[in-house]
Design a protein around this nucleic acid. Structure first.
Length: 111
DNA sequence: TTTCTAACA
DNA sequence: TGTTAGCA
């Protein structure tokens, strides 16, 4: 239902400067998270990253985990392990933001 | 001017 | 993580 919204949310439009302002993270951090495959923003022909709203939301989720004391390593495992396929194609077939189980409470099991 | 990668303090 | 160098 309303596939248009999901498409919009997965449409890459924000440059690094916007991602930084919207998430409060530094470019260094964002690039580092990408190197760990926590986020996979699109690229322009000039190799510049372009983030979608979903990318930013994911960045915010990562931030949330960090505040709960998670290690980047563990955050990576949590976000990837359960075969979390976040490609635009797959997301289109899943409800946007469908809570992947219990987010914040996972800290009690892993922390 | 902004972002990118790589690498060092 | 911060920061900087050298490109595109």
């Amino acid at each position: 239902m309303l596939d248009r919204d999901q498409m919009r949310r997965n449409t890459p439009i924000f440059p690094m400067s916007s991602a930084m302002k919207l998430t409060g993270l530094t470019a260094r951090q964002i690039r580092y998270y990408e190197s760990l495959s926590l986020v996979t923003p699109e690229r322009t022909p000039g190799n510049h990253r372009i983030f979608s709203m979903n990318d930013l939301d994911l960045l915010l989720t990562i931030q949330d985990y960090m505040e709960k004391g998670f290690t980047m390593k563990r955050i990576g495992e949590i976000l990837n392990e359960p075969k979390r396929i976040d490609t635009p194609e797959v997301l289109k077939h899943n409800d946007y933001r469908k809570p992947l189980l219990n987010r914040g409470d996972l800290s009690r099991f892993f922390q």
